[in-house]
């Protein structure tokens, strides 16, 4: 899925898997004689995790060179080490230390990669497009039965009325960007200068309104499952 990174081979990794959770916490703590060595080891581990994450996200895209991927991974690993050390007291020992540590590299790596992929795309331009759009699905797709197309049309009428009459302006924006234009959440978060929880809440509140509208028209979970079950 992703190409091998020649630069990755110079990263020493073998020792890191030998530490226990307790040894990681002890050695990374301030005042430890082993702190410098532990931080260096952690940096190597997180660089590998960052490379894995970013190669996987960007590696098969021609516009990103191995050098760019490597540079991005190094930036990511540095941020991940700083963030992890800040959160070290939060580690509860519920997981392996390295799994917990990887979380930071994966989170920052995917966020950086998505920003790279969407660099140069203006969400304000997307905002200028009319919304709700005329339709949200393809009516004449081969294999779609007329009944199914009619049901989709009915559902879309309900949803578009809900968008128009019940969603807040911010909910409309987030639905347009994330559902219709498939903008990643992290890009929306940055554009709105907010955080992921806030955007998730906007989406959740909008979904709740949509669900209520559909249920008010007699469309519930069971019916939807029947409706969208492939016809034989």
């Amino acid at each position: 899925m992703w190409g091998q990174s020649p630069a990755a081979n110079d990263i020493n990794y073998s020792m890191s898997v030998q530490r226990t959770n307790e040894e990681w916490i002890r050695d990374l703590g301030s005042g430890s004689d082993n702190q410098s060595a532990a931080i260096e080891e952690l940096s190597n581990v997180l660089l590998r995790a960052a490379l894995y994450t970013i190669q996987r996200q960007l590696g098969n895209l021609a516009q990103f060179s191995q050098l760019e991927v490597r540079q991005l991974a190094e930036d990511c690993a540095q941020d991940a080490v700083v963030t992890l050390l800040k959160h070290l007291p939060d580690f509860r020992g519920d997981s392996k230390f390295l799994t917990w540590a990887y979380k930071f590299a994966v989170n920052i790596g995917l966020t950086m990669a998505r920003h790279e992929q969407w660099k140069g795309v203006s969400l304000d331009d997307l905002e200028d497009q009319p919304f709700p759009k005329d339709r949200a699905f393809e009516e004449n797709l081969n294999g779609s039965s007329p009944e199914l197309a009619a049901m989709r049309g009915e559902v879309w009428e309900i949803l578009s009325a809900t968008i128009r009459d019940e969603l807040t302006e911010k909910q409309k924006l987030v639905i347009q960007w994330m559902i219709f234009d498939e903008v990643p959440m992290d890009v929306v978060v940055q554009h709105l200068d907010t955080n992921r929880n806030a955007v998730y809440k906007l989406l959740h509140d909008a979904r709740s309104k949509f669900k209520k509208s559909l249920q008010a028209h007699g469309i519930g979970v069971d019916e939807s499952l029947d409706l969208y079950r492939p016809k034989r």
Partner: peptide, 23 residues
């Protein structure tokens, strides 16, 4: 949005719960 994405969106809407955990 193609039909399969539209259908998936509807399923997610109908699977919405009053209380969901945050990111």
């Amino acid at each position: 949005m193609n039909n399969s994405k539209f259908d998936e969106w509807i399923k997610k809407i109908l699977a919405t719960e009053a209380k969901e955990i945050s990111c």
